[in-house]
Nucleic acid binder design. Structure first.
Length: 809
DNA sequence: AGCGCGCTCCTTTTT
DNA sequence: GGAGCGCGCT
C-alpha cells in the first residue's frame, strides 16, 4: 500500500533560506513568467508575501490568476517548498483547476503540492495521520449526509422519539450547524439544546458522536472539528503543522464558517503568512454556515493585515457592471468595491415580462434560437434560476424546440442509489466493521432477509460489542435463524469473506466487478424493467472504470466520498441550465435570468427566516447572477406562476426596481404574447404600455408596485404563515439519492433493544437448565465458547448462542 | 415481505 | 403537481 504521507513529506524542511542563492539567480536570469500580464494591484497581491494579506477580488478580476501566481512566486523566490504551502479551496473543482494552472505556470514543481485541496480533504489527511489522538483508527470511514441521517434515525428510534414530529433531517441540520461553529456537545448552550425534541438535542448529539466513534466513522463536519480538537489538545502536533506551513492561501474566504476560520487561525499562528482571497459581495452560502463576518473582520483578526482590492474587471461590459454594481451598492455592511472595465459599454441589461412561466421559457428559447442564428455558440449561454423547480419548464421547452441543453447540478454521481450500494459492498469488504455498509447491502439485492434477522444480529452484536458482520458469522453457525434465513445470510457472509481474501491479490477494479456480479447486484438491475435501470448499469460501469485511476481499494474509498464527481457531456455545444448558486465562478457570453419575482427571488423563505440579512444575501445572489455575463444579461419575470401546484399571481422582484435605468432596456412584449401579458397584470406594471423610457423607472410604477406588494403581503396569502410555520431544513440534500424503494428495505436497526441478557463467557455448564426465547426450556448438553448445545424439551437439540438464553426454565 | 394507497412536504448545496 | 415516505393490508 502506498503511503500518502511519504516520510519525506513529513520531515521538516531545511531552515528557510530566505531565497536561496541558486533560486535567486534563477529568478534573475529569466523573466518571471508568472508575473507577466498582471496589473499593478494583482502584482501587489502576488508579491506581498509576508504577513496576513486579504485580497478583495471582485467578480471577474483575476482571482485564480493571483492565487496561482502567488504560489509560483513563493516557490520561485525559494521562500518555501511546494510541500510547505497550504492552499485550501471549497470545492474539488476549484482545487483541480488550481493544480492545473500551477502546473502550467511552474511545470514539474507543481506536481508536488500535497497540501492543495479542499478544507475537508486536507482535514481528512491530517486526521488520518493522527487518528488515534482523537479516538479513531486511521482507516475511519467518512459518512456522507445520507449515512448521517440513517444513523440519526436509528438513534431517534432507540430513544423513542417520534420521527414525525422530530425528523432526523432536522436534527442532522442542527448538528451540522453546531459543527460549523465548532461546537462539541459539551459546548452547545443549553438554550440551543432545547430546539429539538423537548430539549434533548444536546443529548442526542452526544449519543450520535458516541455512535460515530464506535463505528470508527466521522461525518463531514467532524473532519474539521476533530482537527481543531486535535490541535487544541495536542500542542506539539499543532506546532509541527504551524512550522510546516510557511505560507497559507485560502480561496473564497467569504464562504468560510466558524470552524474553518478557527482551523485557519490555529495553523496560521506560526508563520502568519496567511493570504485570503474572497469577495464579500459574493457570499451566498450563509444558510449553510458561512460567516461573511469572517471576511469583514479580517484586519481585526489579523492585525497589520494588508488589504488589496481588485476592481478592474476583465469579464463584463460596462452596462452589466453598472447594473450589478448599482444593485449591490444597496447592501449595508460591505467592504465596498466598485468594479470598472476599460472595455466597451456593450448592450444594456434587458428586462422582459412574461404572462407565466411557460411563456417565460418560450421567450428565452426564442432568444436562444435568434442568437444561434447569428452564430453564437450555445455553450456560451446559460439560464440561471433561483430554485431548481424552475428548471423543468426550460427543459420541456428546449426539448420541443430541439435546443441541446445540459442541466448542471442535480444528484451527484456518488449520491445515486446504485453507486452507494456498490460502495457499500466495497466498504464492507474492505472494512468489516462498517455496520452502516453492512446494513445497506444486507438485503440488497433481496435475499429474503428483513427486520427480524437484523434484530437478531443486533441482539448479538451490541452486548458483545462486535460488528454486525461478525455477529452474522456467529449466528449462521447456530440455530438462531430459521432455515429460510440461514442459508441466505451464510451465502452473504461467505461471499464477503472470500472477496475480502482477494483484496491483496486481485486488482481492485476487477474485484469490484466480481463483487457486483457475484452478489447478484448487477443482475438485480438487469432484471429491473423500469426505465432508468439501463442508466444505473451504465453508472456502475462508470464507477468501475473510475476505480482504475486509483492505486488500491482503500485509496479509492478515501477519495470517492470527498472527491468524485460526475463528468457530463462537456465539450458539446449545449445551453447550460443551473441554479444561481451553481453558477458561481463561471462565466458566459449570454446569461438568462428568469423568475425575478417577489417570493421566488428574493425567496420568501429566506426573508422570513433571516430578515434583512437574508435579503442582502439574496441581493448578492442577484449580483453573482449578473456578473456571470460577459456581454448580455437578460432578465425575466412572469406575472403568474404555479407554486406548489396552485397558480399565484406574482409581482416583479424588488431587484428589478433596483436596477439603474441608464443600464437597462425594457423589452416590449412581442407578437402574440402581448395581450395575455396585459391581461395578467392589469394596472400594476410599469411595463404596461411598455415605454422603455428611463423615466418610467423612477416613480409611478414603483409606487403602485409598492401598493401591490403591500396588499399581497397583507392579504394573508397562505404562503407567508405557511412558510413560517414549517420547520426548516427538511428539504434539500440531493433529492434523488435514495432513488427506488428497494434501498430502504435494507431495514433498520432497533438500537438498544436488547432481547437477551448480556453474555459473559462460559456462564453455563453442561446440565444447566436454560430458557430460549424461541425454543423454550431445555438442558445444556455442551458448551463451546459462547455457543451452547441445548437439548430443548420441545424443539430437540439445537446449537444456540449463550446471549439468547436465560438461566432457569 | 411486498405492494399500494394516502399523507405531507416543497430553496439554494459542498464536503 | 408530484415525489417520497410510512403504514396497513394482503
Amino acid at each position: 500500500m502506498s503511503d500518502p504521507f511519504a516520510l519525506d513529506d513529513w520531515t521538516p524542511a531545511p531552515p528557510p533560506s530566505g531565497g536561496g542563492i541558486a533560486a535567486r539567480a534563477m529568478a534573475a536570469s529569466r523573466p518571471a513568467v508568472h508575473l507577466q500580464g498582471l496589473n499593478p494591484e494583482q502584482k501587489r497581491a502576488v508579491e506581498t508575501l509576508d504577513g496576513p494579506v486579504l485580497v478583495l477580488a471582485g467578480a471577474g478580476t483575476g482571482k485564480t490568476k493571483v492565487l496561482t501566481s502567488r504560489i509560483a512566486e513563493i516557490i520561485s523566490k525559494g521562500r518555501a517548498r511546494a510541500s510547505e504551502i497550504l492552499s485550501v479551496t471549497f470545492t474539488n473543482k476549484a482545487a483541480r483547476e488550481m493544480k492545473e494552472r500551477i502546473g502550467s505556470l511552474i511545470g514539474a514543481v507543481g506536481e508536488g503540492m500535497p497540501w492543495l485541496g479542499t478544507f475537508h480533504s486536507i482535514g481528512a489527511k491530517i486526521l488520518r495521520h493522527h487518528a488515534e489522538l482523537v479516538g479513531l483508527r486511521s482507516d475511519f470511514t467518512i459518512l456522507d449526509t445520507d449515512d448521517q441521517i440513517r444513523l440519526l434515525k436509528q438513534i431517534l428510534q432507540a430513544e423513542d422519539i417520534d420521527e414525525k414530529r422530530w425528523p432526523a433531517r432536522l436534527l442532522a441540520f442542527q448538528i451540522d450547524g453546531w459543527k460549523n461553529r465548532a461546537l462539541t456537545p459539551e459546548k452547545v448552550s443549553s438554550g440551543e439544546g432545547h430546539v429539538f425534541a423537548e430539549g434533548r438535542a444536546r443529548e442526542l448529539y452526544k449519543l450520535y458522536q458516541e455512535r460515530l466513534k464506535a463505528l470508527n466513522a466521522v461525518d463531514f463536519g467532524d473532519l474539521l472539528m476533530e482537527n481543531i480538537r486535535l490541535f487544541q489538545e495536542n500542542p506539539d502536533v499543532l506546532a509541527d503543522f504551524q512550522r510546516r506551513f510557511r505560507f497559507m492561501l485560502v480561496d473564497e474566504y467569504q464562504d468560510t464558517n466558524v470552524a474553518q476560520y478557527l482551523w485557519l487561525r490555529l495553523l496560521a499562528a506560526g508563520h502568519r503568512n496567511l493570504c485570503c482571497v474572497g469577495d464579500d459581495d459574493q457570499s451566498i452560502y450563509g444558510w449553510r454556515g458561512a460567516e461573511v463576518d469572517n471576511i469583514l473582520r479580517f484586519d481585526k483578526d489579523f492585525p497589520g493585515a494588508t488589504v488589496i482590492r481588485l476592481e478592474r474587471n476583465y469579464r463584463s461590459t460596462g452596462h452589466i457592471l453598472g447594473a450589478a454594481g448599482h444593485i449591490i451598492a444597496r447592501n449595508e455592511g460591505r467592504l465596498g468595491k466598485t468594479l470598472f472595465t476599460e472595455g466597451d459599454e456593450g448592450e444594456k441589461v434587458s428586462v422582459a415580462c412574461a404572462w407565466d412561466s411557460e411563456e417565460e421559457a418560450r421567450m428565452v428559447a426564442d432568444e436562444i434560437e435568434a442568437l444561434q442564428h447569428k452564430g453564437h455558440a450555445l455553450q456560451e449561454m446559460a439560464i440561471l434560476v433561483r430554485a431548481s423547480f424552475q428548471m423543468r419548464e426550460f427543459e420541456e421547452r428546449f426539448i420541443t424546440n430541439a435546443i441541446p441543453y445540459r442541466v448542471i447540478g442535480g444528484p451527484r454521481f456518488y449520491e445515486r442509489a446504485e453507486i452507494r450500494d456498490a460502495l457499500a459492498y466495497l466498504r464492507i469488504v474492505s472494512q468489516p466493521a462498517d455496520d452502516l455498509a453492512f446494513e445497506r447491502i444486507f438485503n440488497t439485492p433481496k435475499r429474503g432477509l428483513g427486520d427480524a434477522v437484523l434484530n437478531a444480529l443486533n441482539a448479538y452484536a451490541r452486548p458483545n460489542r462486535v460488528p454486525l458482520l461478525q455477529a452474522a458469522r456467529v449466528l449462521v453457525e447456530s440455530d438462531e435463524l430459521s432455515s429460510r434465513h440461514r442459508p441466505a445470510l451464510r451465502g452473504l457472509v461467505e461471499n464477503i469473506t472470500r472477496w475480502a481474501s482477494l483484496i491483496e491479490t486481485t486488482p481492485h477494479h476487477e474485484l469490484a466487478e466480481m463483487i457486483l456480479e457475484e452478489s447478484g447486484y448487477t443482475d438485480m438491475w438487469k432484471k429491473d424493467r423500469s426505465a432508468d435501470a439501463a442508466g444505473r448499469l451504465d453508472n456502475l460501469k462508470e464507477l468501475v472504470r473510475a476505480m482504475e485511476e486509483f492505486e488500491n481499494l482503500a485509496g479509492f474509498l478515501e477519495h470517492v466520498g470527498l472527491v468524485m464527481e460526475k463528468s457530463q457531456g462537456e465539450g458539446e455545444d449545449r445551453v447550460s441550465i443551473m441554479t444561481l448558486h451553481g453558477a458561481k465562478g463561471l462565466e458566459f457570453e449570454t446569461v438568462f435570468l428568469p423568475g425575478w419575482e417577489e417570493g421566488l427571488f428574493p425567496s420568501q423563505r429566506t426573508l422570513d427566516e433571516q430578515g434583512r440579512a437574508g435579503l442582502e444575501e439574496e441581493r448578492r445572489l442577484a449580483y453573482v447572477g449578473l456578473t456571470r455575463a460577459k456581454r448580455r444579461a437578460k432578465l425575466y419575470f412572469a406575472t403568474n406562476r404555479r407554486i406548489h401546484g396552485l397558480w399565484q399571481s406574482t409581482i416583479p422582484s424588488r431587484f428589478v426596481d433596483e436596477l439603474p435605468a441608464q443600464h437597462v432596456e425594457v423589452m416590449e412584449a412581442s407578437g402574440a404574447y402581448g395581450n395575455m401579458q396585459r391581461l395578467g397584470y392589469a394596472g400594476g406594471s410599469r411595463f404596461e404600455g411598455a415605454a422603455p423610457a428611463a423615466s418610467s423607472y423612477q416613480t409611478p410604477g414603483w409606487q403602485r408596485m409598492q401598493t401591490a406588494r403591500a396588499q399581497n403581503a397583507g392579504g394573508g396569502q397562505a404562503s407567508a404563515s405557511q412558510t413560517a410555520g414549517r420547520s426548516f431544513g427538511s428539504g434539500g440534500f440531493g433529492g434523488g439519492s435514495f432513488g427506488g424503494g428497494y434501498s430502504r428495505s435494507t431495514g433498520r436497526t432497533i438500537e438498544g433493544r436488547v432481547l437477551a441478557s448480556s453474555a459473559q463467557s462460559s456462564r453455563y455448564k453442561s446440565g444447566d437448565r436454560v430458557f430460549h426465547i424461541k425454543f423454550g426450556p431445555g438442558s445444556v448438553t455442551a458448551v463451546d465458547g459462547n455457543k451452547l448445545t441445548v437439548e430443548f424439551d420441545k424443539a430437540g437439540q439445537k446449537m444456540v448462542l449463550e446471549s439468547f438464553v436465560q438461566a432457569g426454565g
